[in-house]
Nucleic acid binder design. Structure first.
Length: 508
RNA sequence: GGCCCGUUCGUAUAGGGGUUAGUACGCCAGGUUUUCAUCCUGGUAACAGGGGUUCGAAUCCCCUACGGGCUACCA
């Protein structure tokens, strides 16, 4: 019996969640559900300077929209409260001090400015400054300052940090579920800050302490964390938690479409597709970044799209419901290479999902939009309309564009098409057609079709011409669903009105 | 620069010693639709390069190249 699966999604509230973060959340969720485990939301707000207000709420709203449900964490509580790191300040301090006491960490008093100077010096010599075994004896810290003096400094409220003491000559092993065994020489690591002078821990400390305390079994996170994982492994060891250390799985990164760098929050709308799940308005600059929701994506499609960015069950199946994703997901099938979002494929996925929405549901959605435009229509009609336009939609927000002509007369005609088809006989033909339409009692598409086709045949007319002209007068342009079905839905009176109006108004 | 991770059609991927290297999106062509879109059929297009190992390598090993990540008192 292995231990209970407990995974966490741990974003920092420094901006809206981007699509890569959403994917990390989704994989964690799928893994938890698949293994009947827990999915925890933890907010990693240890950097006071980068905090952006509203992002915590944003993250929760985004996960809700996508139906990625956590069962423990910020907002809902659990056995390991609090789940916000800023509220756990005291815990980290205690653990950092424990490490100092046991000799695995030490106090350091170098100011950021002093460190900056050191780094620049090294840079000018084309070297990299490493606060570690080779330099720590030349810095202001426990190695160079007497114990008594250190206590005095601390008591005087002098700024200090706590750094890990990286051991010499060790090989640190990481066993990553996705990448296998990774080995790193301890000499490559530096004495990273664990506890900052503002009283907050760094990611490294907070993360390890919380994962341990919250009994996290698997750490599923982006590949950008792989280089610091040896440090985390060392921390587990120094705390004596080796046996409780979670398993790691580092996900391939989502790259920019041009292949230059990883996708970042700053990419906003520059890429031709949303990078955020929900629209985001920057609280300071008021800059608006579009979201998948507002761009007309359906949440199930978004989940499907991002699930397949870096994971594939090995079959040729492509459309997965959330339940199917849960059923089939496994970390072993996650790929190693970074991947790119493809707008065209995403559009196709979304189209697949829209065409699967039942007409009643879509009709309700359309009705909401109509209400905002003060348009009334019967439910029955809306269902018929949705049936006709559903396959023509790629995004939900196209629904008005694709259905407008059912509710109002066209305000403009596609003149190019009309001019091309128009001839001196058209007006009289249209008048005759209006006469025919008036004679139809049950105004059904089948009946209309019979009558009009018969008229065209009897008079030896060009069907393409007549139909195209009628369409433009009714719809405004030369596209849309079957014309006679449109006639039926808008009704006899409206059809006749539009044809008469067009006949009168259009001049070559 | 150093360290780490990666590399199959344009994109997402399947394939893990013997395949005509499969699929989906895109693109192209044809069909359906008297329109457009959907839909259907077909086509286009890839194992980064070089060395090994092997009867045989996309697949295992090494090197190189390229891409990416990390290198903060950011996460």
């Amino acid at each position: 019996m292995g231990k209970r699966v407990r995974v966490r999604f741990a974003p920092s509230p420094t901006g809206p969640l981007h699509i890569g973060g959403v994917r990390t959340a989704l994989y964690n969720y799928l893994f938890a559900k698949k293994n009947n485990g827990d999915f925890i939301l933890r907010i990693e707000d240890t950097d006071k300077n980068r905090f952006v207000s509203g992002t915590e709420e944003y993250i929760i709203e985004a996960l809700n929209w996508l139906n990625i449900k956590f069962n423990e964490g910020v907002g809902i509580g659990g056995n390991h409260v609090p789940y916000k790191q800023s509220e756990r300040e005291d815990i980290y301090k205690q653990y950092a001090q424990q490490l100092v006491k046991s000799g695995f960490a030490y106090y350091a008093f170098d100011t950021p400015e002093e460190l900056d100077i050191k780094r620049k010096e090294c840079e000018s010599r084309k070297e990299t400054f490493q606060y570690g075994i080779s330099t720590r004896n030349a810095m202001k810290n426990s190695f160079t300052i007497e114990e008594e003096e250190i206590q005095k400094k601390i008591n005087n409220n002098e700024h200090y940090v706590i750094r890990i003491k990286i051991p010499a000559g060790e090989i640190i092993h990481i066993n990553d579920i996705i990448r296998g065994n990774v080995e790193v020489q301890s000499s490559q690591l530096d004495d990273k800050v664990l506890f900052k002078s503002d009283g907050m821990p760094t990611y490294h400390l907070a993360n390890v302490v919380d994962d341990y305390l919250m009994k996290i079994s698997h750490v599923i996170r982006g590949e950008e964390w792989l280089p610091s994982t040896p440090l985390h492994v060392l921390l587990y060891k120094y705390f004596g938690w080796e046996n409780e250390m979670p398993l790691f799985a580092h996900l391939p990164l989502l790259l920019k479409p041009d292949g230059k760098g990883k996708l970042s929050k700053r990419d906003g709308d520059k890429l031709g597709f949303p990078v955020f799940p929900l629209q985001w308005v920057d609280p300071v600059t008021k800059e608006i970044s579009s979201g998948y929701r507002e761009s007309g994506y359906v949440p199930e499609a978004v989940n499907n799209i991002i699930a397949l960015l870096g994971w594939n069950p090995g079959s040729e199946k492509e459309i997965f419901s959330m339940d199917e994703l849960i059923e089939e997901f496994s970390l072993e099938k996650v790929g190693k290479a970074g991947c790119r979002f493809d707008y065209e494929k995403a559009k196709w996925f979304n189209h697949q999902y829209i065409s699967k929405i039942n007409n009643e549901e879509l009709a309700e959605y359309l009705n909401e939009i109509l209400k905002s435009k003060k348009i009334n229509s019967s439910k029955e009609n809306l269902i018929k309309i949705c049936e006709l336009i559903k396959d023509r939609m790629n995004f939900m927000n196209e629904i008005w564009d694709k259905s407008e002509y059912f509710f109002r007369q066209p305000t403009t005609y596609d003149e190019k098409v009309l001019k091309d088809k128009w001839n001196e006989n058209i007006p009289s033909t249209l008048n005759n057609i209006v006469g025919k339409l008036k004679s139809i009692s049950g105004f059904t598409s089948a009946e209309i079709e019979n009558i009009i086709k018969e008229y065209i045949q009897v008079n030896n007319l060009n069907a393409g011409t007549v139909m195209t002209v009628l369409r433009v007068l009714i719809v405004g342009k030369n596209s849309g669903p079957e014309l006679f079905k449109i006639f039926e839905i808008i009704g006899k009176e409206e059809t006749i009105k539009r044809v008469e109006k067009g006949t009168k108004e259009f001049k070559v």
